[in-house]
Design a protein around this nucleic acid. Structure first.
Lengths: 214, 214
DNA sequence: TTATTTTTCGATAGACCTATTGAAAAATAA
DNA sequence: TTATTTTTCAATAGGTCTATCGAAAAATAA
């Protein structure tokens, strides 16, 4: 600005939303690809070049959508767990029986596992590779989720709907651990719908996978 | 050999065993360290430098005991599954009831998981990173193991000891998957012995982790 | 059209990692 | 002791990977 001209102050008043939406849509595609590659090769086994290749773009282009590989993993994990806590809160606050609630909780846990397996497998298997600072937030969400889950068991035991050989905390951990294994083997059960799978797991816990008929 | 002296043909007749034993003992320490590092950081997240650091030796020294990182992973996995098939064969061939056998199989599966957790975690979590050629042998062992496990369920259903909502193949896969999760959370259950843990898991399957008292 | 912004790209530095090599050190045998 | 074997080492070649940079291309606005 060699002369005294004042920069025109015409701010763009319209359509910033549309532009940001487009960016976010592309970013979602990028994170989808990251989830797929992380799930398949593991976080450390996956390179940013692998992610770019899946998208058909240059490796360096990825950094327009995230600023480090760590951040990509964080985004995948956050998306993997998104909505879990809120849905479980609604179930716990509902007025069904304890058995209804535990069945609802298992459905809540398993169905997204099946609909977004890449996100969930990454969340379950690769979260531990997130640096401590990024992992904090996710750990808090997990702690809250686990507490809600355990609350259902505590309530069910208190009102004598359930009896168990284990304490509620141990049972909660084992139950969630079993649900978390689902994306690693459900591919072998294509004859079952997600809801059926969830029902079967719930049955496993409520009455056993095997039982004596008499 | 400037003059015509013939090289003395005195082969060492004694103590080659001792020497080899010493080498093997050190090799076991090296593979132990590899198992610990693989279990903690994952195969791709672990470097040979990490393993050497744990042993307090130079990174290049490791290659006196294995000739590639892949081979180290293979050795860890083989040791992790060692004895599993043989013990399960003995259980299946025994003359206990189907319930005894399924309990025995769960004990067989879980106790080593707890005694050698680094090996087992590596076996469960990192086997998939073994190159195809090295994985073949292990896959065969797994297939044999799974078939034995399923045989117990098939027999129990045939003789009406068990009834289940799932087919025996699906049940086998889910049961093994649950057993495999043990090393990832059993640290939280230090009040229980391995045998108790195995009993509790068996109870989970036979009668449910939760059941209605009436 | 031209100007501006958004998106993608090629090139690359800097770091890390595996595996090899020949030699040094340590252990053992003679 | 000296000779031989076993074990460890430092140095490093050759490769891959992450993240950065300025420029090119594409999309959008004027």
């Amino acid at each position: 600005m060699p002369d005294g001209a004042v920069k025109t102050e015409k701010k763009p008043v319209k359509k910033p939303v549309k532009k940001k939406d487009k960016y976010r849509q592309r970013q979602t595609e990028v994170i989808d690809a990251a989830a797929a590659v992380f799930a398949k090769k593991g976080y450390h086994g996956a390179s940013t070049g692998d992610i770019a290749a899946l998208l058909g773009i240059a490796q360096s282009s990825l950094y327009y959508y995230f600023k480090s590989k760590d951040e990509a993993l964080e985004k995948v994990c956050l998306h993997g767990i998104k909505g879990y806590v809120e849905r479980l809160q609604a179930i716990v606050a509902g007025d069904g029986s304890a058995e209804d609630k535990i069945r609802g909780a298992i459905h809540n846990h398993i169905e997204p596992v099946i609909f977004i397996p890449d996100y969930f497998r990454t969340f379950v298997g690769e979260l531990r590779y997130l640096p401590e600072n990024r992992r904090q937030k996710l750990n808090n969400m997990i702690a809250e989720y686990n507490a809600l889950f355990e609350q259902i068991l505590v309530d069910g035991i208190a009102e004598k709907t359930f009896t168990g050989s284990l304490d509620s905390h141990s049972t909660m951990l084992m139950l969630i651990a079993q649900c978390n294994t689902v994306p690693f083997w459900f591919g072998q059960f294509e004859q079952y719908s997600p809801a059926q799978l969830a029902d079967m797991l719930a049955d496993n816990f409520l009455q056993g996978a095997l039982w004596r008929p008499n």
